[in-house]
Design a protein around this nucleic acid. Structure first.
Lengths: 198, 198
DNA sequence: GTCTATATCGCGATAGAC
DNA sequence: GTCTATCGCGATATAGAC
């Protein structure tokens, strides 16, 4: 911001591109989101946009990275609130997802494409999965400490199942928007409670 | 089979194409599976193959449909065995999936692409999801009857979560094959047991 | 029913001017 | 830093011969 010269400008422009792309995709979905289309939205030519990102795949990965940064704040806020846990923030993020179908679709499609061995976005997803599991395990263990989650559960397995359920629900919801993603995650969370607890 | 004339021949050829395509994809994955490649495998030209299928998307959907037919037998066999339930068959199918990464990838990628409104494979997936939920709900209710599953659970929600977990685990596994898909599904199933049950 | 040949396409990427 | 122009790929789909 306060920095001078082309470097700072480049950073700022990247951010501007990402913000614009985020809006376009949220509105129009992944299918019609070519580099050209995104370039138009920010007032650049296609080549001009690709000056900032090595490839389309990396651009898309950066969009999701930026989205995750925003969502991460929701998670941290919930974690900081002593009446809540990271899992409450997670449910809130899922609830918010229902407002941005285009982004949900981008996530679903790019994560599927990134299963290809040489896909540029693959490192993004493997790291994302790792971090999600790490945060979840931490949150689950906290719940086990304070008695809100069954102590006998395997936090690692639950974390992977949580991630899987969230991703799978997004595809189901894209096919049939009457599915309530957040409610299903909440229901899964109730399965983790001790028999005695409310 | 016993039928005569061009119609029966066409049906047989379709089956031959699907079988060959199934093998090629299981071996090479989705990424390198163009219509041309699949045509080569069965000894047809690309145009020759498309004489039997309206489009690539429909061809791929048919491949998955055929795969589901095979897997369905595993489910039914488990259901018929009075010591088992459909869910046991489901775990077995997931275990088998680890042997056919190409098919898992085809499923993951095509289901993501089929979230596009006008995608030819979309009806296949919506129907598949519906059927999976139907069979799962039935199986869960049976488990609730005979006391192996908590009676207070919402079978519909569990069914959707089961489907979501299965699909999500496949993407995770494609990114990192050390994940044990079947084991995770089994673990999810244990969460459904009554507190008293073993 | 199957092939050859081609229409047509859109896109991502790159070269080079300004 | 941005544009114009174009390359070049790979693909699906189709027309029409045999």
């Amino acid at each position: 911001m306060a920095r001078r010269g082309s470097y700072a400008k480049g950073i700022a422009k990247r951010e501007e591109i990402l913000s614009a792309a985020l809006e376009v995709i949220a509105r129009n979905g992944y299918g019609r989101a070519s580099v050209r289309e995104l370039a138009d939205a920010v007032g650049l030519s296609q080549a001009g946009l690709l000056h900032y990102f090595a490839s389309k795949e990396e651009l898309f990965a950066e969009i999701l990275r930026k989205r995750d940064e925003v969502d991460r704040e929701t998670l941290d806020a919930a974690h900081a609130d002593e009446r809540l846990s990271m899992m409450d923030g997670f449910v809130e993020v899922m609830r918010h997802n229902a407002d941005v179908p285009g982004l949900v679709q981008l996530y679903a499609r790019l994560s599927a494409e990134a299963t290809e061995a040489d896909h540029a976005a693959r490192p993004f997803f493997t790291e994302r999965f790792r971090l999600f599991r790490e945060l979840s395990v931490e949150s689950i263990r906290e719940g086990q400490q304070d008695g809100t989650i069954r102590a006998d559960l395997d936090a690692e397995r639950i974390a992977s199942l949580m991630l899987a359920a969230a991703d799978g629900l997004q595809t189901q919801w894209l096919m049939d928007p009457t599915i309530d993603m957040a409610e299903h995650i909440e229901y899964l969370l109730t399965l983790l409670k001790p028999p005695a607890a409310a």
